[in-house]
Design a binder for these strands. Structure first.
Lengths: 357, 357
DNA sequence: TGTCAACACGAAAACGTTTTCGTTAAATAT
DNA sequence: ATATTTAACGAAAACGTTTTCGTGTTGACA
């Protein structure tokens, strides 16, 4: 078992000093051509690679970014990670992920675990419990310690940082408009509780689109699902709620759901009730994931562009990190151009499939 | 902006030495009660937390495990990550993830990037390209450098390390047996190319189960999909292949597919061809993911227990890491009990849903 | 009063780098 | 021949910890 070799060992073997080895490997012209060749050959032979941890300590940066998300078994979030990893990798960074599991406490623990030097900055999406509590002190605390944060999707005004969001409001508007154009007269909304900001925005879009279309909103046509308990394991509850909803409102001929699970479940329930999709009822969901693509009928959705969100987030974060860097270098200049915080909005579009006419 | 405080700063402020601060914070009885109180109070006030990187360098271990998988937007893999993160977190470890994107080169680059001190060990699943090339030198190289690896799902005999796999063979046997019991006479197999070991094992299970059931295997009833190009974006190709397959073999009344996407697509195609599921054709897939659960009709599957695989993998790795640790401590004893490599097999079970009778 | 243990703390090394600042010897300039 | 530059290298500090090994002061004891 050949343990990884260090500068010190190379130095000892070749009977030179550590500094000489280091310089030779970086092709410093302080070192003679002969010794440089010799050292480089030896290093190559033993497959020397500088130790990342030592570099991190010396440079006071880890070239690692921390991702903190509520859940990973989730098409949208994993898509975002893919996007982050893509640009991180391209720009020489690693990613370390923490899962909050929608829990306030786990979110804090994870942040503290990572904020102690392990990473250079965060990309995160807020957990439901945190949104419910409206307690954002941990975010502000880490920002105050000089660690930049980029928030995506579930963001909040109370924290000042770069943000990447999807245009939830307009996405919803587009979806509902489409249903109106397709001559739906009684358009229902299936949404979550209000505290998740994206749900609120999508609801607002629904209402505005109705008004713009000259349709009066009917609160009976809005179904709010309590997703505090994870829905994945309570499909039956979801199904019965929707079934009851449809039965009490037989006039419904169009449904806009704020996520694809609700939409697909709605289709399933509708068909059990003998309704044909899209003939008797048209359905549009938010978030374009696997379910939408492979459901029968396949689901018309508002695309959420998770990967793009991830890429943008990573670019924002790394840009800021590297700006900081050159900023401290030019500390003597009065070049105090702290970049303002950016709120990047990703446009949505409707992907038409079989669940609409 | 309050940057994180260090031992040195505390020492300077309180006019003691760094060593005193360190000892006081770890409640060493070398330090008087008075100064201990004072230092701890100060540390708490400034929210001192030891720097992880410095600790890593000193202890020569990072308390971080590296995950290297082919793809993250994938229900099975993300489930595994969730499992790993769960026990890693519980046992005081972080996880850093790299994606190979099914590419040999990216797999190597990622490994080298992480193997230089960033992590204590790997949990990984081999990329398709690597399996195709059958070039495993990078795995053996990192193992030789003293970095333990745990492989899951896509494993290979050529590398000596701990492994966690699902009982692919028996899973397939169970599925096909079930179809036979349900009186299917012409059972088709939809599988991948042979080089992915799991596909091969599942195929073998299919063949064995047929034989055990007294049914002669018919090579016409086996459809091999070339998944070298990612299927997600070539659904149409997949659909037409399956449609052609079904049309040329109208006798098929049962289908076993080696993943859920193939299974769900098969159902979709069958229905387009006017077949009713499960009456005219029964379908069972491998891997219990979102699609299986939410398809209509919902799909009977062989569960793959991704989360459990992740948990077991993490436990195996951490056990080995901590065994190594105590081993080097007791270096003077002749206690050379290197644990043998373990191959852990997770049992599968059939989850019955609507696609079978 | 002199010896020794206990107490409370500091100095320094170590982890693996990079970089600044010597230092020595040879080469060049005066 | 002397002064000065240059080439080639080493020593040491620094990043933030922990830990081993002093070291000085106090008090007890003979």
């Amino acid at each position: 078992m050949k343990k990884k070799i260090t500068l010190k060992q190379i130095a000892r073997e070749l009977d030179v000093s550590v500094s000489t080895v280091s310089k030779a490997l970086s092709n410093s012209k302080e070192i003679s051509e002969d010794t440089t060749k010799k050292i480089q050959a030896f290093a190559k032979l033993y497959n020397y690679k500088p130790n990342n941890i030592a570099l991190s300590l010396k440079n006071r940066k880890t070239k690692t970014i921390g991702i903190l998300i509520p859940e990973i078994v989730h098409h949208f979030f994993s898509t975002v990670i893919r996007g982050i990893e893509r640009v991180a990798n391209r720009r020489g960074y690693n990613v370390i992920v923490g899962l909050s599991n929608e829990s306030f406490t786990k979110e804090i623990i994870n942040m503290e675990m990572l904020a102690n030097g392990s990473i250079d900055g965060f990309i995160l999406s807020i957990s439901k419990e945190t949104l419910l509590k409206q307690d954002y002190h941990h975010f502000n605390a880490t920002i105050n310690q000089g660690m930049p944060i980029v928030m995506f999707d579930r963001v909040v005004n109370e924290v000042e940082c770069d943000k990447v969001i999807v245009d939830d409001f307009n996405g919803a508007v587009k979806a509902v408009k489409k249903l109106i154009e397709n001559e739906c007269k009684n358009i229902a909304l299936i949404t979550t509780m209000d505290y998740v900001s994206v749900g609120r925005l999508r609801t607002q879009g629904y209402l505005d689109a109705l008004q713009a279309g000259g349709i009066e909103a009917d609160s009976n046509l809005i179904l709010k699902i309590d997703d505090s308990l994870d829905v994945e394991n309570h499909i039956e509850v979801l199904e019965t709620e929707i079934a009851h909803f449809f039965k009490s409102n037989p006039s419904i001929d169009g449904v806009f759901a704020v996520n694809e699970l609700y939409a697909v479940t709605a289709m399933k329930v509708a068909r059990k009730l003998g309704l044909s999709i899209p003939d008797d009822m048209q359905v549009i969901g938010f978030t374009d994931g696997v379910l939408s693509k492979h459901a029968t009928p396949s689901l018309t959705t508002v695309s959420q562009h998770g990967q793009k969100m991830g890429e943008q987030s990573a670019n924002l974060l790394i840009d800021r990190l590297e700006a900081e860097e050159s900023e401290t270098e030019q500390y003597f200049t009065n070049n105090e151009k702290k970049r303002d915080f950016i709120k990047m909005v990703i446009e949505t579009e409707i992907i038409e499939r079989e669940s609409t006419k």
